[in-house]
């Protein structure tokens, strides 16, 4: 194996991993705040990619603007889904509804949403693969290694989003409330805060991250109605590997799965995902709470 190939595999792993990091940060924010395991998260990612296809490819908007819009639109879609579906499900809960039952009910609702969004997209756009031309076709040559600028942009965008999230979570009042609500919603209510809108925001923020992730990956992958299904299961894996409730764990898990997939495809071909699942099983048997999860401590 040449150093060039190795470097490219690493770059692929990092860019793929970055997308998983964005996806899983979204899932994690939603799960911690609203206690919803949202299986439709992958469809938000898929819709984000279609948004980019529409805004950038068809309407010829600026790429960065299209990306931001894709994130905002999916945030709005998330907010609407939360208010019309998950909030209604939550209101049926009583004090005697156990935590696992709550999780199960909202997860089932999300599976329904997943099917609706996927079939709806299929009806609207058909089965054909849509391509989004890359806005950054340039290759950078560093020493002997040729690097795709688009992949570098993906990585940089993910880093920027992570920094923005860090700022939001640890430097703003809203972030303080978001962290507090995931620990104890009642304490937040008793501070005089209407938690309902915080939860809507929480769901919208997570969904926006999925939309952004789908948007930024659109120039690298083909855009199809079922592209969200594979991603959601791998994202859930990343969530488990990293550990629920740890941003660092999510980032670590995302990069790990990115590496495993990238190198797996190169050396094992089609069974790369099997390799990833085996890796996850191995990690979880030693650290059942994930690498850095709350349950690990």
């Amino acid at each position: 194996m040449t150093p060039g190939l190795l470097a490219q595999l690493f770059l692929n792993a990092l860019s793929l991993g970055s997308v998983y990091v964005l996806m899983v940060l979204g899932l994690d924010i939603i799960i911690r705040g609203t206690k919803i395991l949202n299986f439709a998260h992958g469809q938000f990612y898929m819709l984000g990619a279609y948004m980019l296809f529409l805004l950038f490819q068809i309407m010829h908007l600026d790429f960065a603007l299209s990306l931001v819009l894709a994130g905002l639109i999916l945030g709005l879609v998330g907010a609407i889904c939360y208010m019309s579906i998950f909030h209604v499900v939550r209101q049926r809960f009583t004090v005697t509804t156990t935590f696992s039952y709550r999780l199960l009910l909202s997860a089932m609702a999300s599976v329904g949403l997943m099917m609706i969004l996927q079939q709806g997209t299929l009806l609207l756009f058909g089965t054909e693969e849509r391509g989004v031309k890359t806005p950054f076709p340039q290759m950078i040559d560093i020493l002997d290694v040729r690097i795709s600028l688009m992949r570098v942009i993906v990585i940089l965008a993910a880093i920027v989003i992570c920094l923005l999230l860090y700022f939001l979570m640890y430097k703003t009042t809203l972030g303080k409330i978001l962290r507090a609500i995931s620990y104890d919603p009642e304490a937040v209510t008793l501070a005089g805060i209407n938690t309902r809108w915080i939860l809507v925001f929480c769901f919208a923020l997570g969904s926006a991250l999925a939309g952004f992730a789908g948007g930024i990956i659109a120039p690298l992958f083909s855009v199809t109605p079922d592209m969200g299904t594979d991603v959601i299961f791998l994202s859930l894996l990343v969530l488990l590997v990293g550990g629920i409730g740890s941003y660092k764990g999510t980032i670590l898990g995302g990069l790990l799965v990115g590496l495993a997939l990238s190198f797996g495809f190169q050396f094992l071909g089609g069974i790369a995902e099997l390799f990833v699942f085996l890796l996850v099983i191995a990690i979880l048997s030693f650290r059942p709470g994930g690498l850095l999860g709350e349950a690990a401590d």
């Binding site: 303080k176 620990y183 104890d184 209510t189 008793l190 501070a191 005089g192």
Partner: peptide, 29 residues
């Protein structure tokens, strides 16, 4: 949350502090 705003504070059983937040952040909330 509206009852709190009217002027009734409730300190629940088992000291519902927000353990992962700093002392200062708890107070700020």
């Amino acid at each position: 949350y509206k009852i709190v705003r009217l002027g009734i504070s409730h300190v629940p059983e088992g000291r519902k502090i927000l353990a992962p937040l700093s002392v200062m952040e708890n107070l700020e909330l």
